[in-house]
C-alpha cells in the first residue's frame, strides 16, 4: 500500500515537474519571438523544411481522405436517399476537421521528430552550450525560427490540403458515383462558409505551434547520448499528436458551440 502511494506521489511529482518546465520553456520561447534579433534567414529555411517538404505527404493524405469520405458518405446517405449531401459532407469535414488534423498529425510525425532529433543531438554534443559561449541565444537561434515557421506555414499547408481533399471527393463523386460535375461543385461552394475554413486555419496555426514547441522542448531537454535523443524524438511525436487532438476538440468547442 505504501509502495503504491509512493509510486503515485512520484509520478505526480514528475508530471507536475515536466509540466512546469514546459510552461516555463514555452513562455521563454514565445517572449523571444517578439524581441530582436530575429534570424530571418533561419525562419525561411524552416518554412521550406516544414512547409514545402511536407507537401507530398500532406497532399497524398488529403486526396485519399477526400476520396474515401465521398465513398463512405455516399454509402451512408444513399440509405436515406440523400446522396446530394455528399459534396456538402466532404467539404465540411475536410475544411473543419480532416484538413487541419491530418496535416497536423503528418507534420508532427515528420517535422516534430526531426526537430527533436536535430536539437537533441545538438544538446548532447554540447553544440547548444557552444552557441551560448559564442554570444548567441539558443532560444532565438534555434527555437524561435521553428516556432514562427510552424505557426505561419501550417495554415498555408492546410489551405492546400483543403483544396486537394475537396478535389479528391470531387473525383470520386464524378467518376465513380456519377454526380453531375456542375451540381457537385455548386453544392460544395454554396455550403461552405468562411467560418468553416477560418476555424480550420486557426486550428492549423495552433497545431503548428504545438508541433514546433514539442519538437524543440523535447530536443532541448534531451540527455545522455543517442538513446536519450531517441526517447525525446518519440516523446515529441507522441505528445504533439495527443495535444493536437486535444486542442482540436477545444477549438471546435469554442468555434461552433456558441
Amino acid at each position: 500500500m505504501m509502495k503504491f502511494l509512493y509510486l503515485i506521489g512520484k509520478i505526480s511529482i514528475s508530471f507536475f515537474n515536466s509540466f512546469g518546465l514546459l510552461v516555463k520553456f514555452s513562455l521563454i520561447c514565445i517572449s523571444h519571438c517578439f524581441r530582436p534579433p530575429i534570424y530571418v534567414h533561419s525562419i525561411f529555411k524552416q518554412m521550406v523544411e516544414i512547409g514545402f517538404y511536407s507537401l507530398p505527404v500532406v497532399g497524398l493524405t488529403a486526396i485519399f481522405s477526400g476520396m474515401v469520405l465521398a465513398l463512405q458518405s455516399h454509402t451512408g446517405f444513399s440509405r436515406f436517399n440523400a446522396e446530394s449531401a455528399v459534396a456538402n459532407v466532404v467539404v465540411l469535414s475536410i475544411t473543419r476537421e480532416l484538413g487541419p488534423v491530418l496535416a497536423g498529425l503528418m507534420v508532427a510525425g515528420r517535422v516534430g521528430a526531426s526537430m527533436a532529433a536535430e536539437i537533441g543531438t545538438m544538446r548532447v554534443t554540447e553544440q547548444i552550450d557552444a552557441l551560448s559561449t559564442l554570444s548567441t541565444n539558443p532560444y532565438k537561434y534555434l527555437i524561435v525560427p521553428r516556432i514562427i515557421a510552424g505557426v505561419t506555414v501550417l495554415p498555408i499547408l492546410v489551405i492546400i490540403a483543403d483544396i486537394i481533399g475537396v478535389f479528391g471527393g470531387y473525383i470520386v463523386g464524378i467518376f465513380k458515383l456519377d454526380f453531375n460535375p456542375n451540381v457537385y461543385l455548386s453544392n460544395t461552394i454554396d455550403f461552405v462558409e468562411p467560418l468553416d475554413v477560418i476555424s480550420g486555419l486557426v486550428k492549423a496555426s495552433v497545431f503548428g505551434l504545438i508541433i514546433s514547441l514539442m519538437g524543440c522542448f523535447h530536443g532541448f531537454h534531451s540527455k545522455g547520448g543517442a538513446q536519450g535523443v531517441g526517447i525525446s524524438t518519440t516523446n515529441a511525436v507522441v505528445s504533439a499528436s495527443i495535444l493536437i487532438l486535444t486542442a482540436n476538440y477545444i477549438i471546435t468547442e469554442i468555434f461552433f458551440s456558441i
Partner: peptide, 19 residues
C-alpha cells in the same frame, strides 16, 4: 552576460562544432 561571453573562448571536450 553575452557581453562577458564575448571576452571568452571555449574549446569543448568533443569540439562541439555545428555540424
Amino acid at each position: 552576460r553575452s557581453i562577458i561571453n564575448q571576452k571568452i573562448g571555449m574549446l569543448f571536450q568533443n569540439a562541439a562544432l555545428f555540424d
